[in-house]
């Protein structure tokens, strides 16, 4: 097992290097760079001296160097924990991400809890009572959930909350708490805002999970061990939860590992943008549009890093819950 983990970590490191390089190249592929945009913007505002300062900026951000050198400078600092400077904010990327990371994690954990707490019982109910009225209703709602994009749902929620209910649901904090130090009141304020994006994420995520749970469970019900468990005199409930769900949940754990970990950074970016959340998602989108390459590259590498961690964790969890995949 130890050797397995070491080998996986080794592959992961190679993978990260490849991804970081490819993403760096792709981000810098469009003509021009961040400064061209910046200067065009400054000149449009009437700042005539801007174009004269271009070279200063170029030198400062290292943009006058060839691409490979730029990459090397960035990645060698990256492994030491210095992710480079954000052009847009003129501040270290690490600091910007660090500020928002807690909220991103909190949001994704809340969404995940909502999703699983809703999806698994509904999926099980749906499978146990296949073709019943309840199953039909759940299935219909699930398909609507799969069909509606999250950002559209977010817009609808915003409209209802702001225009009809006159509630402040934008962002994660009310105005008075935005820059206030942490306190109980601020946490409470956060909770009051957090449920909106979490619920939107849950509605879109739940739908698929319900369908997967239902399908897996129906497959499992047809297996011989379910029949023999019933023939031992077990209660239907015990057969379902102890034997069927235990077997049917494996694919969900794979999904959890491979989607939830990268989802911390890139879960529901469009919803986060629509709701104006101070999480990493909107930061990432903005960095991509303005060619803020160190910022974009860093987030991308972190997403891939989380994906690889998620895969490794998934494999370990699977080995723990299913003896058949255990390595000798």
């Amino acid at each position: 097992m130890g050797a397995f983990i070491i080998r996986r970590v080794f592959y992961a490191i190679i993978m990260l290097f490849v991804v970081s390089f490819v993403s760096f190249v792709i981000i810098s592929l469009p003509a021009g760079d961040f400064l061209d945009q910046k200067i065009a913007e400054l000149e449009a505002r009437g700042d005539r001296s801007a174009s004269q300062r271009v070279d200063d900026y170029r030198e400062r951000y290292g943009l006058d160097q060839p691409l490979l050198t730029q990459y090397w400078l960035w990645i060698s600092n990256f492994v030491q924990g210095d992710f480079g400077l954000s052009f847009e904010y003129d501040r270290p990327v690490r600091e910007l991400i660090g500020q928002r990371l807690t909220l991103s994690i909190l949001l994704s954990l809340t969404t995940l809890t909502f999703t699983w707490a809703i999806a698994i019982p509904l999926g099980v109910y749906s499978a146990v009572n296949q073709y019943s009225l309840g199953d039909q209703i759940i299935t219909t709602i699930a398909f609507i959930g799969i069909g509606i994009p999250g950002f559209l749902l977010a817009l609808i929620v915003l409209y209802v909350a702001i225009v009809i209910l006159n509630q402040d649901v934008v962002g994660l904090f009310s105005q008075q708490f935005k820059d206030a130090p942490w306190s109980l009141a601020k946490v409470w304020d956060l909770m009051k805002h957090l449920w909106v994006p979490a619920l939107i994420g849950a509605v879109t995520g739940t739908a698929g999970t319900i369908r997967i749970m239902r399908g897996n469970l129906l497959d499992t019900f047809g297996q011989a061990f379910i029949e023999s468990a019933r023939a031992r005199g077990l209660k239907q409930r015990t057969v379902v939860w102890r034997h069927a769900v235990r077997m049917a949940i494996t694919p969900l754990i794979i999904i959890l590992g491979t989607e939830a970990f990268p989802g911390i950074l890139a879960g529901n970016i469009l919803v986060e943008v629509v709701l104006g959340l101070p999480t990493i998602g909107p930061l990432y989108i903005q960095a991509l549009t303005t060619q803020d390459m160190y910022m974009a590259g860093t987030v991308l590498v972190l997403i891939v890093f989380l994906l690889l961690v998620g895969n490794l964790v998934t494999d370990l969890v699977l080995a723990w819950i299913d003896p058949r995949v255990r390595l000798e």
Partner: peptide, 20 residues
């Protein structure tokens, strides 16, 4: 009665036990 008074074994010993 099931399992207690009347027990049953099936054709498929391969899949009659929950694998986990």
């Amino acid at each position: 009665i099931r399992g207690g008074h009347i027990a049953m074994i099936f054709q498929e010993p391969m899949s009659s036990m929950t694998p986990v």
